[in-house]
Design a protein around this nucleic acid. Structure first.
Lengths: 192, 192
DNA sequence: TTCATTCTTGACATCATCGTCAAGATTGAC
DNA sequence: GTCAATCTTGACGATGATGTCAAGAATGAA
């Protein structure tokens, strides 16, 4: 290999993830990415083709990290405290940074109408895998829940996490989100 | 008044609402609005100043319609069936059109980072008023719930509706959203 | 050391949007 | 009917983003 790449691809993708997380796929520009990574626009085009290709790489990295963290949180303690850990994690995830970055998956989902099918599939992939993680976590619980019930409930839980992401964008504080999550867990998991 | 306006303002705002609902505040352009309303860009600038001013008018109209529909739905039957009506209404609201338009409030909330405080306040206003409507509806219910509990639960319900809006954007069908809503209602309202 | 290949750089053309403005059209008031 | 105020129209310049390209720089291979 001659004429070797002058930048660290991992670093560029990591920096790009930060840019996309703060600005969103649609609003982040190649200029933003070039400025943040220190790599010229032309080089980015040469290396990746276009903005979306960079986004897909960044999003894949994000999805892996996120789902692993979710799995870990859910696995700690029994089903109820696993869920609590999970909500804590997810709320920190979306309220972190200054200003807070929000939830990348949710932001990306909202741009579905103007996104490629590739992007849409990544979003669906994250939600589906999250549903499966949660379904397993709560169907393994002592309660006399059927697997079908657990799956339905898992989807409700995923849906609620998406709602939290929206409320964060609407201005609700970390504390308020935590309170809602607690109320939700009590109402949904405290029985049935 | 000489040199009178050549277009019907109500019609323009109604059409603008449709455009914003389909494209979002950020993605809709003045050209989109001009094409949809049949009013030249220059006239729109002259009459309203800028895109955001038109959006605020359209959004106010939307908010009124939406909150009135929500109130009506909640008021029909007891608290449980009121909630069911409410969810039915809200799901139809976001899955209507072809392609579906989604939820304008949620879409707007997600653009909070790039929106003016005026726009942010409208979003918060809708969510707050919706919370209050729901709080009243469920605190008037026979259950032995305190008002504080009802308010917390109302916020959880609003949050869940936001989640439904995200799931719709992620590709979930009307039927799937209805199933999640049913599961949610059973889990949250069926007890406590 | 030389060379061929790949990457990098800065400039370019294109496009879409924005906001403004001067000239013309319209119309209520007198 | 005339006039003055307001609206409408189409064009203009500015801006910022996109994607491409030719020329130069860098480097592994021989």
């Amino acid at each position: 290999m001659v004429g070797v790449r002058q930048f660290d691809e991992d670093e560029v993708v990591a920096t790009a993830l930060d840019v996309f997380w703060r600005k969103g796929l649609h609003d982040a520009t190649m200029q933003d990415l070039a400025a943040a990574t220190g790599v010229q626009r032309g080089s980015l085009y040469n290396a990746y083709g276009d903005k979306e290709a960079i986004f897909l790489r960044a999003f894949d990295r994000y999805a892996e990290q996120f789902l692993e963290a979710a799995g870990n949180a859910l696995a700690q303690g029994d089903a109820a405290s696993g869920l609590k850990n999970f909500f804590d994690m997810i709320i920190v995830n979306m309220t972190d940074g200054s200003p807070p970055r929000g939830c990348l998956t949710t932001r990306t989902a909202l741009d579905a109408a103007i996104s490629s099918t590739d992007v849409q599939q990544r979003v669906q992939g994250v939600l589906t895998r999250l549903e499966q993680l949660i379904g397993k976590a709560i169907s393994g619980a002592p309660g006399k829940r059927s697997v079908a019930d657990a799956n339905r409930l898992a989807r409700v839980i995923v849906t609620f996490t998406r709602g939290l992401a929206v409320m964060e964008r609407a201005g609700y504080s970390r504390k308020q989100l935590r309170e809602s999550a607690t109320t939700f867990i009590e109402a949904v998991v405290g029985n049935a």
